[in-house]
């Protein structure tokens, strides 16, 4: 989660506006929940500058997200907006808010485990148990490391038999 220090009234207003923009691929989360918005500031001439970062380098939703931000802020009264695309520091699932993780689970996507657990480089490494978002069982297995979008893997629950997406640690 990002620390918002000494936030001005205008900045807070922009953050609240951004919190209402859903991620195009996982609409249950806002782009703020996902940690895609890294920074909000106001330039000398009173225009907002928003720093965003892609989850994966090839994330096809980034152009869409940029358009959504411009439209939302235009409706909030900011015609001119500077968007800064930051590569560094690299996005990580650690930036996902706790509230975001809870929302993901309710939506039926298993939220990312904490970082140290799954990022093992060894071949055939057993991923740590991922909890089924439906029945909460840890008796699950990985069907494929790659799922419906770059950020997800495909799992199935041995207990309730439901297949589900896992938002993989990154």
């Amino acid at each position: 989660m990002i620390k918002r220090e000494t936030e001005t009234g205008a900045e807070a207003k922009i953050w609240s506006a951004l919190e209402t923009i859903p991620d195009p691929e996982i609409p249950v989360l806002s782009i703020v929940d996902l940690g895609i918005v890294r920074k909000v500031s106001i330039t000398e001439n009173g225009e907002p500058a928003i720093t965003i970062t892609a989850t994966y380098t090839g994330c096809p939703a980034m152009d869409m997200i940029a358009i959504e931000i411009r439209m939302k802020l235009a409706a909030t009264g900011y015609k001119q907006v500077t968007l800064i695309n930051a590569i560094s520091p690299a996005w990580t699932t650690d930036w996902m808010s706790e509230e975001g993780k809870q929302k993901l689970k309710e939506y039926g996507i298993a939220p990312p485990n904490s970082k140290q657990q799954v990022c093992d480089q060894n071949l055939f490494a057993e991923a740590d148990a991922v909890q089924c978002p439906q029945c909460n069982s840890y008796n699950t297995y990985r069907i494929s490391e790659f799922g419906s979008t770059a950020c997800k893997a495909l799992y199935q629950c041995n207990n309730c038999k439901e297949p589900f997406d896992y938002f993989k640690c990154h």
Binding site: Y56, G58, E145
Partner: peptide, 13 residues
């Protein structure tokens, strides 16, 4: 899906 996900990463890079 795996190979096309990898493709997407490569093109992103």
């Amino acid at each position: 899906i795996a190979i096309t996900n990898i493709t997407l990463d490569l093109i992103g890079q």
